[in-house]
């Protein structure tokens, strides 16, 4: 008898669209052979299932616009080559013409971006700002989320709501008051500390909501027995809860990181020293109202995205369990 998870792909294939002709016989062959040929058969069966078709289609849609960015970055040029369908060409050739590929591959955009301005330095600045934001944002949100999750106190509901409200006021209109507070009152213009403060607070609501939900799912019994053994609240928080919540912390940390990593307008307004600019500010040098160097911008964007993608890959296994369990009782 087949195991349940072994049989389900085949059933889904039968429920989905019916392949015809040679494909059908191939699939029939694959299905028949599946239990014996093992891996190869499973792969074939996977490839002809509706799930695979759907995922492939979605991936193509996701990748297509990104391909434009990549092709522009590697083209060595500043503006996109326009698509123009060859006339009297076959359907295949016409479709091929729609795929954005540079006429020749060329790294000159990347070298120009990296050498003509202190791009690596800006990347380093961004890294410092984003990591500090992550650290500060996480320590603020972990402790707040712990309190929201484990204590029952007056103002708890209202406090949670307050965090949500802060996401509702349009950010573009907070610019001037933030400038007044950070630069004029706190005197933190032209220092990363000002940026880090603002970014951590911006990321706080999402982090608190998600972490609070995750803490809610952690069993309370461990804490109770620890309390009986005389552990303090602080010890429980740092020694039990935080290690257990690592997946959620990884995910909210990633969110805080991205908040700081991609922000442009505040960074450009607060910083009065070019060597202190963060990388999104540096990127915008390539775009202006008159002439825009889109090739440089694309190359820079790819460079900027690499650290984030690496983080995504590193945290991938946390990503799924971290957010969901966090949201279960959020």
């Amino acid at each position: 008898m087949n195991l349940p998870n072994d049989s389900s792909p085949r059933r889904s294939l039968l429920a989905g669209e019916q392949p015809r002709g040679p494909v059908r016989s191939l699939v029939a062959f694959a299905c028949k052979q599946a239990p014996t040929t093992g891996r190869a058969g499973r792969i074939l069966r996977d490839i002809f299932s509706w799930r695979f078709a759907l995922l492939l289609f979605a991936s193509l849609i996701v990748i297509y616009p990104l391909l434009w960015v990549v092709s522009l970055a590697f083209s060595g040029q500043q503006s996109l080559t326009l698509v123009q369908l060859p006339e009297d060409a076959s359907l295949g050739q016409q479709l091929l013409a729609l795929i954005p590929l540079p006429e020749q591959w060329n790294l000159s955009n990347f070298t120009a971006v990296l050498t003509e301005q202190p791009f690596l330095r800006w990347l380093g600045n961004s890294l410092v700002v984003a990591l500090s934001t992550t650290l500060l944002g996480l320590s603020l949100s972990c402790s707040a989320a712990y309190a929201f999750s484990r204590f029952r106190f007056a103002g708890r509901e209202r406090g949670l709501m307050l965090f949500l409200i802060s996401q509702m006021f349009p950010a573009v209109l907070m610019l001037i008051p933030l400038y007044v507070i950070v630069v004029q009152w706190l005197g933190l213009g032209n220092s990363w500390l000002g940026l880090i403060l603002v970014y951590s607070i911006t990321a706080l609501p999402f982090c608190v909501w998600m972490l609070k939900g995750y803490f809610d799912t952690l069993p309370y019994e461990i804490e109770e027995s620890a309390l009986l053994e005389g552990a303090s609240r602080w010890m429980i928080f740092t020694r039990i809860i935080l290690p257990l919540a690592r997946p959620a912390i990884a995910v909210t940390g990633l969110f805080a990181f991205m908040t700081a990593w991609n922000e442009f307008i505040l960074a450009s307004i607060f910083m009065d020293d070019e060597s202190l600019y963060t990388v999104p500010v540096g990127l915008r040098f390539f775009v202006s109202d008159y002439a825009s160097e889109w090739g440089f911008f694309a190359a820079g964007s790819i460079l900027v995205s690499i650290p984030v993608m690496l983080l995504f890959l590193a945290l991938q296994r946390y990503l799924v369990s971290g957010l969901s369990a966090g949201a279960v009782k959020g």
Binding site: S139, L140, S141, S143, A144, Y146, A147, F148, F151, F153, R156, G159, L162, F163, I165, S166, F169, L173, M174, I176, P177, L178, V180, I181, V182, L197, V198, S200, I201, L204, V208, R233, F237
Partner: peptide
């Protein structure tokens, strides 16, 4: 007291950088 102490840092930040701009607006 414990709960408020855990929340205080986050609330301080929120008051300064979110509540104030809100009241300003």
């Amino acid at each position: 007291r414990n709960a408020y102490l855990y929340i205080a840092p986050a609330m301080l930040g929120m008051t300064l950088l979110v509540l104030f701009p809100l009241v300003y607006g």
